[in-house]
Simulated scan of single mutants.
Amino acid sequence: MIHILVVEDEPSLCQLLVNNLGFEGYSVEAVGDGVPALSAHTARRADLIVLDLMLPQLDGFEVLRTLRERKDEVPVLLLTARGEETDRVKGLSLGADDYLVKPFSVLELMARVKAILRRTRPVDRPARLRSGPFQFDLPRLEARRDGKTLELTPREFRLLEILISHAGRTHSRKELLQLAWEPDARPSARTVDVHIANLRRKLGEELGSPWITTVGGEGYRWITPVEPDPGAGPGGAAERG
């Protein structure tokens, strides 16, 4: 299992990262400063480090510098509120693989994490899935019905990805809010309902059987079995339930 180390001292953002990465099936460990980050990585080597720059004691630049001085090429995604060009250049020059400025979209964060892991790790699950008449290309954020591309927004696709990744499981509105929205977005449960309604319309539920069912008082569930697309190529694992 891919192991990701999150180094972030802001509790709500740290929890957001842990929730989203854990939902994707990664093993996640979180620490709040640079020294315990280096210790944690030594104790259990990470496949990716998501690293905040502004930390209480040992900052992200020094953590990254220490790793590279040790000839450790672990992939590093920097997160920071410091978006100046000099900071970006410094981080990349020290050997960071990518750089994301706060506040950021959780959708973009997950896309960047997956892009780094595609470059550095073999695929742990298929990039393409199918369910009933639908085909899903996860890296491309594309969904098709009977070969016809569906015009989904990134947020709608994220909700769809959450549902199909655990087909048959009920996802509460609160869980969907935590996994598909940023912590400072402050959406309501009604926001989830509106997006699900739009998603259902675009999936074409009016044409036949429902794909997303509402579980009274709880949330939503994708009810059609999901399996790897035969065209996904080698290296894909079976769908996680």
Results as ranks from 00 to 15, higher is better:
184 D>H: 12
24 E>C: 12
229 D>A: 10
237 A>L: 13
181 W>S: 12
133 P>H: 05
143 A>S: 04
6 V>M: 08
218 E>A: 14
46 A>N: 06
146 D>F: 11
149 T>R: 15
87 D>I: 07
107 L>Q: 12
70 R>H: 10
18 V>F: 02
68 R>D: 09
189 A>M: 13
171 H>D: 00
178 Q>V: 10
209 S>W: 10
211 W>D: 05
109 L>P: 04
56 P>L: 11
19 N>G: 05
234 P>G: 07
13 L>G: 11
136 F>D: 00
6 V>I: 11
185 A>S: 14
144 R>P: 02
193 D>F: 02
63 V>Y: 03
88 R>N: 04
132 G>H: 02
192 V>M: 00
1 M>T: 14
241 G>M: 11
65 R>E: 14
76 V>C: 07
148 K>G: 07
220 Y>E: 06
211 W>L: 13
164 I>Q: 00
239 E>W: 10
2 I>E: 10
162 I>V: 15
133 P>W: 01
17 L>N: 04
69 E>P: 01
75 P>L: 04
106 V>R: 04
118 R>Y: 07
60 G>S: 08
17 L>V: 05
166 H>K: 13
113 V>D: 01
76 V>S: 06
145 R>G: 07
105 S>I: 00
98 D>C: 05
204 G>L: 05
90 K>T: 13
238 A>K: 10
95 G>Y: 00
241 G>E: 14
23 F>L: 06
16 L>I: 09
218 E>S: 14
194 V>L: 15
78 L>D: 03
131 S>Y: 00
162 I>D: 02
86 T>V: 14
79 L>P: 02
152 L>N: 05
176 L>T: 01
84 E>K: 11
214 T>Q: 14
35 V>R: 13
209 S>K: 15
36 P>H: 09
182 E>R: 06
220 Y>V: 03
44 R>Q: 15
215 V>L: 10
149 T>P: 10
174 K>N: 13
36 P>G: 09
180 A>Q: 04
77 L>Q: 02
149 T>H: 09
107 L>R: 14
161 E>N: 13
144 R>A: 13
125 R>T: 11
175 E>L: 15
26 Y>Q: 02
77 L>S: 07
97 D>L: 05
48 L>C: 08
56 P>T: 12
232 A>I: 05
208 G>C: 08
78 L>G: 04
72 D>P: 00
68 R>C: 09
85 E>W: 09
228 P>S: 01
131 S>P: 00
113 V>F: 00
31 V>T: 04
137 D>S: 11
162 I>H: 03
194 V>E: 11
101 V>S: 05
171 H>C: 02
175 E>C: 08
143 A>T: 08
154 P>S: 08
124 D>F: 11
25 G>D: 01
120 T>E: 10
215 V>R: 15
12 S>C: 07
211 W>R: 14
213 T>A: 15
115 A>C: 11
132 G>C: 01
143 A>D: 00
81 A>N: 08
69 E>Q: 15
